[in-house]
Nucleic acid binder design. Structure first.
Lengths: 119, 119
DNA sequence: TAAATAATTCAACTATCATTGAAATATGGA
DNA sequence: TCCATATTTCAATGATAGTTGAATTATTTA
């Protein structure tokens, strides 16, 4: 992941409402959540929610699909994975910043773990 | 790490200048870098740099110590570690978003991720 | 087709953020 | 002490970000 992309993702998550939304999406898994349901869960007003969902989508952290008159949003795990890798690679300088460092894997040069589906 | 703290850390990193500064500090390791050296490395003007360094310190991502007439800044790795743990715990739904998941070592700081909301 | 529901867009407003240059505060050395 | 260096503070400015409510678009159902 490039620095620019990482910053976009970080900025997307660095906000109360959006982090709450994203956490809800993560909990929901690949099935995702309708926008209205997210509004219920988080208490964010629809128009504000729409703004934040666009922000998350733009950052590549959420996907959306139309389902009848609902729009279902879901977390994009690859991007989150990419972000964690970026932070581990570039912001930990080979130091034990992550539990992974406790394992005998080399800390600084980690390749992305491709993982789309939650258990 | 609490959500509020995580957001502060995310916000601190979600900015070109600050991410560049933090990466430089990480590369420098515990020895750290004088403010002026950071200014040289990143091209950020002193007063602007000072603003961003305060921001990073406030977020717990940097420490500072006086050395003669220099002020040496260094990365605070524990906070970065805590942030990565937070993101892994709360934003990956118990899924292996990070290489750490590959090792079956130590759950360490991880709490079980409870799944409350059905799809 | 008309009404109801789901979501997004828009404009207006306020608040916060980032940068700049000048001034202030150390600290070390001549 | 005086001067140069290192860094921070401050005020002013322009740029972004987040919220709100009304209007709009799209889809389903009657």
């Amino acid at each position: 992941m490039e620095t620019k992309t990482a910053i976009t993702a970080l900025a997307a998550l660095a906000q109360d409402s959006r982090l709450a939304i994203f956490r809800a999406l993560v909990q929901a898994g690949p099935a995702g959540l309708a926008a209205g349901r997210i509004s219920e869960l988080t208490g964010i007003a629809p128009s504000s929610l729409s703004f934040h969902l666009k922000e998350l989508s733009h950052a590549g952290l959420a996907d959306s699909r139309q389902d009848g008159r609902f729009v279902i949003y879901s977390a994009r795990f690859e991007t989150m994975n990419g972000l964690l890798d970026y932070l581990t690679d570039n912001c930990c300088g080979g130091n034990p910043c992550t539990p992974a460092a406790k394992c005998a894997v080399k800390p600084a040069t980690r390749k992305p773990v491709s993982r789309k589906e939650p258990a």
